[in-house]
Design a protein around this nucleic acid. Structure first.
Lengths: 213, 213
DNA sequence: CGCTCGCTTGATATAGCTCAAAAGCTGTGG
DNA sequence: CCACAGCTTTTGAGCTATATCAAGCGAGCG
């Protein structure tokens, strides 16, 4: 159903500046991932976590017949991948070319204090998303998604969607056709304007906000 | 749409044995909640967390028009309520008469280390539940739910559902009628047997398991 | 220039919802 | 112990939002 790219990008460079959370005191290398390449797979036993320097990442799960649910998108600045207790429970892929800092677990260094707030925020996000997917209509889901993206990109009227319609559908529990139809309808109503397929302008933010329920 | 009981049970007793996670070294009181009574509300600023001694709890969110999404059920032995950073993001209610240990935050006592694994498990559960609600059919959702309940009650063939059909529907993103119809269909197929409305026996666990997809 | 791939649009099908009514439980009072 | 009231659950009939299937479109690329 969904083509899953399996190219793991091999190269790593060691030049970039160090971040707040030191990896054992040594500089944290920046790794690059091509669009569609896998960052980690479900079942993998590496308990690293990752901070996005630039780009975007999708976290997802699959059913045996290929149905996919994207549980989260992560954008620049966000941290992900800490759901591994023994092994990862999800897949993570770069959506576009993405640069990541990898924080490997260090013996004797307990990161609970830093990770707990991140885990909580992630849990709350997932549970809030359940309300969207479980109880909202297609229009409400799309509206909620667009507002969320706008908020995360700093409340700009112009937002950039790094992900495809398929990704949006798999995130919201809709088909690609429904996503497309709803977006077209919002465009026709003058709520949105398209500047290219993946850049769109929210012309009537209030209308959009009122559609979330 | 769903009547929300607002009776907060006032009484508290101080006799019960102490648990693993001491509340500042003092014994943790056991509080009782009647069926339907509120444990905490969305927006509340008390950052306690709770361990269930007996009974069952639902965590949920509401839309303005009354649509409800239950994001989690918690059973005896489980801990919940730690999603409050500044304020709770959800409502918590007792489903049946429930006894809780309340752990209040204690200045200078950092519980990150204990809470992180709980938060992670809870996050993974929520994200896995997203796949069920976002991408599975009614039958698959019910099957997944029943298997989950059976697993959590110790793999017994006989399981007890403390929650109503409405609760199950609001957890799985289905209407009460669909829940009822699917359960009836599973009964007619000989997969389930009812011993009273809320006690049921899984006669063909393998068939049920194969329905999760 | 023509292919490919992602997107849009249209027509039709259907799973699950809504509305309605009947059938079981549970508790209360006589 | 029975009868009745107020629930929750089940069942039925018809409807609708969204999925599915199918065709066209347009931008990017060799």
């Amino acid at each position: 159903m969904n083509a899953i790219a399996n190219t793991r990008v091999p190269f790593e460079i060691l030049t970039a500046p160090q971040l707040d959370v030191p990896n054992d005191g040594r500089p944290v290398p920046l790794s690059f991932f091509n669009a569609g390449s896998e960052i980690y797979a479900q079942g993998e036993k590496v308990a690293s976590h990752y901070q996005i320097e630039f780009g975007a990442v999708r976290i997802y799960r699959l059913l045996a017949d290929g149905r996919r649910q994207i549980t989260a998108f992560h954008l620049a600045g966000e941290t992900f991948g800490f759901e591994a207790d023994l092994a990862h429970h999800f897949f993570a892929e770069a959506i576009v070319t993405t640069g990541l800092r990898t924080f490997r677990p260090v013996a004797g260094l307990d990161r609970s204090r830093e990770l707990l707030p991140l885990a909580l925020r992630c849990m709350v996000r997932a549970q809030e998303h359940l309300l969207v997917v479980g109880r909202q209509t297609a229009v409400e889901r799309i509206a909620a998604f667009l507002i969320d993206m706008a908020d995360r990109q700093g409340e700009l009227a112009q937002i950039e969607l790094p992900m495809s319609r398929q990704d949006i559908g798999d995130y919201l529990g809709l088909t690609i056709e429904t996503v497309s139809r709803v977006l077209s309808r919002l465009r026709d109503k003058g709520v949105l304007k398209f500047h290219g397929l993946r850049i769109l302008e929210i012309c009537k933010p209030e209308t959009l906000r009122s559609m979330c329920e």
